[in-house]
Each structure stands twice: as structure tokens, then as C-alpha cells.
Amino acid sequence: MTGAVIAEIRNLRVHFPVRNGRKQLLARAVDGVDLVVHEREIVALVGESGCGKTTVARAIMRLVEATEGSVSVGGVDITHVRGRELRRLRRMFQMIFQDPFDALPATATAAEVVAEGLAIHRPELDPGARRAAALSALESCGLQPASSVADRRMFTLSGGQRQRVAIAAALAVEPRLLVADEPVSMLDVSLRAGIIRVLLDLRERLDVATLFITHDLALAGVFADRVAVLYLGRIVEEGPAAEVIGNPAHPYTRALVGVMPVPRSGPDAHRRGPRTLLTGEPPNATDTSPGCRFAPRCPLHRELGEPQRCHTEIPALQSPPDAPDAEHRVACHFPPSLQKENIS
């Protein structure tokens, strides 16, 4: 991917203390994530519920503290910045939360929601200029004319309108990175399409980079430039969206692709191949056993007689020797050709 690096996450770990009776344990919600987002790029972070996607997003936003590792935005390491300096830097990175009903104050007007961030990050604007900028942001997010919603309180707006207001509030301060945490999961299909079009349009007009958190691999495939697949706090596969979905190189990604909806007829009907069905539940995040975290559920692991290497060595995220694209990386001890031969 060409273009300047906007966000760089290195060896990010977020551990939470939990108690099991009298015993103190650590839940390793995020356990060594490396990820880069370039200018104007949309990167989708996908995985099952509970895999650590939202914790990654909140760590980038400094809503939770990193246990280890670093997060840089616009070339500035924000991992340990605090107080006024953190507040100043927040203009560079903004977040869209999953639930617009909880994320926005119900009794505030749409214009007030958008203007709040402008008052913090652009104090040189007088009230009239802030309102004008807020109306412009609302219109840029598809709320046209802005005057029709600007003075309406949030509880009177639909879910799609609320999410557009949330996007307008994030983009009004002109961030370089937008972190969108499941921004369409609470909306119906028609409203989802509208929000996705808004995000794509804003990428083209404002050059904003986006980290898009989702559990929907099909959505990531049509929306994102790159896809990173997260499993229990670790990225197990990363690469161009078309390559990851069209030629998955990790057993977990193959399982996710296998349950993607495919039309019963038409040009894409042939895409439905044999499904890889996973058994069991994800392992406990407090388990400190060495080796691959996916091994207990991995069908390839069972087919090959449970190789000891899977239990003792964490697989590195790297390009396999038989991968056609060097940007396509996978964290598995076995090449994709062996996976297809044993799992198909």
C-alpha cells in the first residue's frame, strides 16, 4: 500500500486483571497486535465476538491503557501522552461507536453534538462559525438540508440519522484517522448501505484513513482495502481484502469465509465451496499455555495428528512460501497448500 503511514500499532498488548476465587489472573484481551493504516486506506479488523476487536480500537483511542506496545498516529507516539497534550492530539484520531443511541446525548440537538468537538479542538471559531461548520459537516454526511435536522434533539432522529450525526461529529474536527467500531451493526440493510456510501465518499474527499471494526467478513470484502483477521487477541491473517477472502490462508479465515452468504443463483453462486466447521469454544483468555491459540479448534491440527509444534510455538505472522501476494501474511505453521489438501 502506497501513501504515508497514518497509524502504526506495534506489539500492542492489553491485559485485564480478573479474579478466579482467590487467584488473580490476567485476561489477555489483546496479545501482540501489529497493524499499519496508510493515508486514505480502509483497513477492516474482523473476527468473532470477544476476539479483542473493540479493545484494539479503544486502546488506539486511549480509552483503555496499553499494557505493552505502542500506538502512533500521524508519526506521533500517543501511547503514554496524558493531560492537555493528549487532548490536543485527539483531533488527529476520532471514533464512531457501535450504538448511536448510547454514544450521543439524547437531549442535545444534532448541531450541538457536532459543535461540541469544534469548541474543543477549534477554539478560534466563534459560535456562529462553529454552527456553520457543524451544518456543513452534517450535510457532508448526507443529512441534507442540514437545517432539517440541526435543531432536532437526538431522541427524535432515526438510527441512521443518529449514526450520520456521529460521523459528522467525528469528521468535523478533520482527523487523520477514523476508528469505526461496528458502525452499521445496529442498522438495517438499507441504512447500512447509506452509511457505507458516506464513509467511502468522505475517504475520497477528505483523505481520511479508516480502521473499520466488524464481524461481517462479507462487508469487509466489499468495503475495505485490506483485511486483518483477529483471533483471541492476535492477528492470524492480513492482506488485500480480495486476496484474504478469495484465497484464505489460515484455517480460521477459511471457516469465516465458508459461512459467508452466497447467492443461490447468478455469477457468484459458484463461490460456495466446502465449509470448514469449527468445533468447541474459543479458549479462555486467561490461559497462558504456549503455542497457537487456534490449535484447540483447528481442523488442520486434528487432521495432522495434533503436531507438537502447535502446542509449543506461537506462529509468526509472515508471507507463506506459496502465497502469490507478498502483502498477504498468515500466522500458521503450515502452508495454505497443505491446508487445502487436508481440509477441503
Score class of each variant (00 low, 15 high):
167 I>S: 00
158 S>G: 10
226 R>S: 03
127 P>C: 00
204 E>F: 13
243 E>W: 15
137 A>E: 05
168 A>C: 07
141 C>Q: 03
187 L>W: 11
213 I>R: 07
206 L>V: 12
218 A>D: 05
170 A>K: 14
216 D>S: 07
159 G>A: 05
217 L>T: 08
135 L>N: 02
215 H>N: 04
157 L>M: 10
229 V>M: 13
167 I>T: 01
224 A>C: 01
228 A>Q: 04
239 G>A: 11
227 V>E: 05
247 N>D: 09
152 R>G: 00
183 P>S: 03
137 A>F: 03
146 A>C: 11
176 R>M: 10
151 D>S: 04
146 A>D: 00
140 S>N: 11
221 G>T: 14
145 P>Y: 07
172 A>S: 13
179 V>G: 00
244 V>M: 11
240 P>L: 13
209 A>D: 02
185 S>P: 00
140 S>C: 07
198 V>D: 01
233 G>V: 07
133 A>E: 12
225 D>N: 11
182 E>S: 03
231 Y>L: 07
177 L>H: 05
163 Q>R: 09
163 Q>T: 12
212 F>N: 04
194 G>S: 15
228 A>S: 03
237 E>Q: 11
171 L>N: 00
227 V>A: 01
141 C>L: 03
177 L>Y: 01
189 V>R: 08
181 D>V: 03
175 P>R: 10
